[in-house]
Amino acid sequence: MKIRHIIIAMLVVTFTMSSCKKEAEKKEVTNEKTEVLAADLQTVSLNISGMTCEIGCAKTIQSKLSKKEGVASAKVVFTDSLATIEFDKNRTSKEDLISFIGGIAGGDLYTASEATEAASKK
C-alpha cells in the first residue's frame, strides 16, 4: 500500500514538473511574438456614427474589434463616438478596420471614418 502511494506521488510530481516547463516555454514564445508585433503596431482613431447606446453598440463594437485578427487593443467611447485602435499594420489596415466596423450588425448601423487629430485628443 505504501509503495502505491509513493508511485502515485512520484507521478504527480513528474506531471507537475513537466507542466511547469511547458508553460514556461509557451510564455517565452508569446513574449517573442509580442516583441515582433510591438515593432509593427500603429494606432488609429476612428469616428463612428450610428451608435445609440453604451452597452449594445459601443461595447459590442469594442468587443468585435478586440477579437479581429491584427488588432492589439481597441477602445470605443460612446460619448465621443470615437474608437481608438492599436493594430499590426502588417496584418490589417485602417481601411480594413473602417470596413470591418461598417459590416458589424449586418452593415446597416455603423459608419466609421478616420478622426481628425483634434477629435481624437478629446
Rank of each mutant, 00 (worst) to 15 (best):
Thr92His: 12
Asp96Ala: 15
Leu97Asn: 11
Gly103Tyr: 00
Ile101Tyr: 00
Asp88Ala: 10
Glu95Cys: 11
Ala72Asn: 15
Phe87Pro: 02
Ile104Trp: 02
Lys68Ser: 05
Lys68Leu: 12
Ser73Asp: 14
Ser81Gly: 08
Ile85Glu: 07
Glu69Ile: 06
Thr84Phe: 01
Asp96Phe: 09
Phe87Asn: 03
Thr92Cys: 12
Asp80Met: 01
Ala74Met: 09
Ser93His: 10
Arg91Tyr: 09
Lys68Met: 11
Asn90Pro: 05
Gly70Cys: 05
Ala74Phe: 08
Arg91Met: 14
Ile104Tyr: 00
Ser73Met: 08
Phe100Trp: 04
Ala72Arg: 14
Ile104Asp: 01
Gly70Lys: 07
Ser93Val: 07
Asp80Val: 00
Ile101Cys: 01
Ile85Pro: 07
Phe78Val: 00
Val77Arg: 05
Thr84Arg: 11
Phe87Ser: 06
Gly70Val: 06
Ile98Gln: 07
Phe78Glu: 00
Lys94Pro: 04
Ile98Trp: 03
Asp80Leu: 02
Asn90Ser: 15
Ser73Cys: 08
Ala105Gln: 07
Arg91Asp: 10
Glu95Leu: 14
Lys89Cys: 11
Glu69Met: 08
Glu86Met: 09
Gly103Leu: 01
Ala83Gly: 05
Phe87Thr: 05
Val77Ala: 10
Gly70Pro: 04
Ser99Gly: 07
Ser99Gln: 10
Thr92Asp: 10
Gly70Glu: 05
Ile98Val: 14
Lys75Gly: 05
Phe87Cys: 05
Ile85Met: 10
Phe87Val: 07
Gly70Met: 07
Lys89Leu: 12
Ile104Met: 05
Asp96Lys: 15
Thr79Met: 09
Ile104Thr: 04
Gly70Asp: 09
Lys89Pro: 07
Ser73Glu: 14
Lys89Glu: 15
Ser73Ala: 15
Gly103Pro: 00
Arg91Thr: 12
Ile85Gly: 03
Leu82Asp: 00
Ile104Gly: 03
Asp80Gly: 00
Ser93Leu: 09
Ala105Cys: 06
Val77Gly: 01
Thr92Pro: 10
Ile85Ala: 10
Ala72Pro: 04
